[in-house]
């Protein structure tokens, strides 16, 4: 109930905000928390005179829910991850960028042009990409960590001291890699095995937390935890003796993308901002801040040299493949939702 009230009030506030933003030279951005340095926005405003308003969200699903609850038509751009681009595309929430509308489209790195979630980049451009795996505090556990057993069948030192991301997609995807089964399985034995695996492993987990995934490792509350690569390098910088693992079973790859939303109130400003983000110097500033990777050619000269050498950026020779989270159909998804509810009941 409290939530609904919050949503309604937020929707109301957004409508008011949107009216104010409809004036010329504005841009309304819907973005993740802690993912956009203010300097980059200031630079864009200085170059173009366009004022940027930014609201933030903490999960792809929260963003989707907010847009579905009526915020579409309020925002110009959002920054969904790979699988969420597919979902938003299939929900008809994205606008198509015509040929020639983006002057810097040629700057997109060739391997990131024909992506499965937006073939030919009809509605999106790359923002940052990276991996999701886990890391282990080496002061606590010195043994082998390049295996998903760390999370799902942990050694005694780590039992009860593991933080998981509070994200159904990431947790079930990694568990599927551990079992060697497809992400959207409809095989009942496989699904039962997945359910049992998570039920059994839960006893060894201390918490589910995404926002504080880095803090719990730095403070020592958790001795191991699922984490994004950039978060882990920040944890190391803050003094935690944590090592990021690239398990042999595989890990999760992701790419966040800037998408042009349907009914964008400031479509021209939005395209200008997308062009701005495709300039190597600008996107490199974001990469230096977030410690992930850019999907634009020619960024390397603007990047902090230390970044490329980070262990989180260099999988070892035996590392498994990085796999994107897949989008399941409705019937299959219902079973995965049930498994997640079983896990957290």
């Amino acid at each position: 109930m409290k939530n609904l009230m919050k949503t309604s009030v937020a929707a109301l506030a957004l409508t008011v905000g949107a009216n104010a933003a409809a004036a010329e030279g504005n841009l309304v951005l819907y973005h993740w928390f802690e993912y956009m340095p203010q300097e980059v926005l200031d630079k864009f405003t200085a170059e173009t005179g366009i004022e940027v308003t930014m609201d933030t969200y903490d999960s792809n699903e929260a963003m989707l829910a907010s847009l579905k609850a009526g915020a579409i038509g309020t925002y110009d751009l959002a920054v969904p991850s790979d699988y969420m681009v597919s979902i938003m595309g299939s929900e008809g929430m994205l606008d198509t960028i015509a040929d020639g509308e983006l002057h810097n489209k040629g700057n997109i790195a060739p391997e990131w042009v024909d992506v499965s979630f937006d073939p030919g980049r009809q509605s999106s451009i790359p923002y940052q990409w990276g991996s999701t795996s886990f890391s282990v505090n080496r002061d606590v556990y010195a043994g082998e960590i390049q295996t998903t057993d760390i999370l799902f069948n942990p050694p005694a030192e780590l039992q009860g001291r593991i933080n998981m991301l509070d994200s159904q997609g990431d947790v079930t995807a990694l568990a599927s890699l551990h079992l060697g089964i497809p992400q959207c399985s409809s095989d009942r034995e496989q699904l039962k095995a997945l359910n049992d695996l998570l039920q059994g492993a839960k006893a060894h987990w201390a918490s589910f937390n995404s926002d504080t995934a880095k803090e719990v490792l730095v403070s020592g509350d958790a001795a191991a935890g699922m984490i994004y690569d950039g978060f882990n390098s920040k944890a190391r910088e803050e003094g935690a003796n944590v090592e990021y693992a690239f398990p042999t079973q595989g890990y999760i790859a992701w790419m966040d993308n800037v998408v042009l939303l349907k009914d964008a109130p400031n479509r021209d400003s939005a395209l200008k901002f997308m062009d701005f983000l495709l300039e190597p110097e600008n996107i490199a500033a974001i990469t230096n801040y977030a410690a992930y990777n850019a999907g634009v050619t020619g960024v390397s000269e603007f990047l902090d040299p230390a970044l490329a050498a980070q262990p989180e950026k260099n999988p070892h020779a035996d590392a498994g493949n990085g796999v994107f989270i897949q989008v399941c159909d409705e019937a299959t998804q219902a079973v995965y939702d049930q498994i997640w509810t079983n896990l957290k009941k």
Partner: peptide, 16 residues
Amino acid sequence: GAKNFMIGSLIEEQFK
């Protein structure tokens, strides 16, 4: 630690 749903988090999960 969000390990177990309470009513509030169960409802939140359905929307967000």
